[in-house]
């Protein structure tokens, strides 16, 4: 009988690593559920979940809820309330995402090379759907020096490569100024 073993999205990609003042580390996957409210069911959903994030919102009434697209939110962790399936489409996406944490005082400078958004203007915590280079990106700003970067799992290698290069460039620039 074949023994299947779970592998990590960034397996073989040599995370964590640092360049200069920035560090990139992998997030160990946990349960992630995409919640998309059925039309007209948002009120019932809010009662069960304790809230539903507006665009860009991140909060934790019980489970951590991250706005993840138009009328969509990702719930992190186990224990969705019973009956939720009657007011929203629930989609287990735990295996579909690759998440990494970029942290350090130069994290914003690194992301400025790849993300066409002013990340200084975002509150913390908050989320945004955007792009990192050519990759689709769900960005969660945790603080001024910590960002969660989520892309589709098949693109983990590209995410690492793009960030590796930007981190090296920012570190090199720091070294000569």
């Amino acid at each position: 009988m074949i023994e299947l073993s779970a592998s990590q999205p960034f397996a073989g990609l040599h995370l964590p690593f640092s360049h200069g003042a920035t560090r990139l580390s992998a997030i160990v996957p946990a349960r992630m559920t995409m919640i998309a409210p059925f039309p007209g069911k948002t009120e019932a959903l809010v009662k069960l979940l304790g809230g539903f994030p507006a665009p860009g919102e991140v909060f934790e009434p019980h489970l951590r809820l991250v706005w993840a697209g138009r009328e969509q939110a990702l719930a992190f962790g186990e224990g969705l309330p019973d009956g939720l399936e009657t007011c929203a489409s629930l989609n287990d996406q735990s295996d579909s995402w690759a998440g990494a944490i970029l942290e350090g005082e130069d994290a914003k400078a690194v992301l400025a090379r790849l993300v066409a958004m002013d990340l200084r203007a975002l509150p913390a915590p908050s989320s945004a759907r955007t792009m990192l280079g050519h990759l689709p990106l769900l960005l969660v700003k945790e603080s001024e020096a910590e960002f969660q970067l989520w892309t589709y799992r098949s693109m983990a290698g590209s995410l690492k490569n793009d960030l590796d290069q930007a981190m090296r460039s920012v570190a090199a620039r720091r070294a000569v100024t």
């Binding site: 665009p55 860009g56 138009r70 066409a116 958004m117 945004a128 759907r129 955007t130 792009m131």
Partner: peptide
């Protein structure tokens, strides 16, 4: 309307 001002390449 969801995300605010964004670069052309996202559209």
């Amino acid at each position: 309307p969801c995300c605010g001002w964004r670069d052309l390449r996202e559209f």
